[in-house]
Amino acid sequence: MFMSRWIMAVSIGLAYARLCDAQSPMLGEPVSEAELADIDYVVLPDGRGLPSGSGTAAEGKDVYEQHCLACHGASGADGINDRLVGGHGTIDTARPEKTVGSYWPYATTLFDYIRRAMPYQTPGSLSADEVYGLTAYVLFLNDIVDENERLNADTLPAVKMPNRENFVWGYEPK
């Protein structure tokens, strides 16, 4: 009796699995590696997804002054839009000032965001070297890297942001 129930359960399970398979119209098309390379912008904090190329703050300064200064100001702290620089030591005070330097936990986020969305009027127009250079320049303005420190897919994930340890997770995936 036990066996027959067990066999019945397996049979039903298999039938259900086949039913589910049958229900999907399976209308997705294969994606080539080349297509994936074009659309995959995901960068993880451990550096996976970062492209080849490199840049330093010294190289990024010109790019910043050409593309970023109008909105973020010469110092990165005096523009009409988000403040990128400063606020260090304010996060646990009565007047927290969140900037890239004072608040952001991961340096990879900066590269990821610039590559996706900046410059605001011409996103996607910068080369990987320019994005690395800009990332380095904003980190340099925050005293997080040296002017000639070369950032690339290996060195960027190793940059330790000052506020890294002050984040906790409100959700743990099951």
Binding site: V42, V43, L44, P45, K98, V100, Y103, W104, P105, Y106, T108, T109, D112, Y113, A117, F167
Partner: peptide, 9 residues
């Protein structure tokens, strides 16, 4: 997680 700009900053 990717720790994107929106989910962190």
């Amino acid at each position: 997680p990717a720790m994107t700009k929106d989910e962190t900053s």
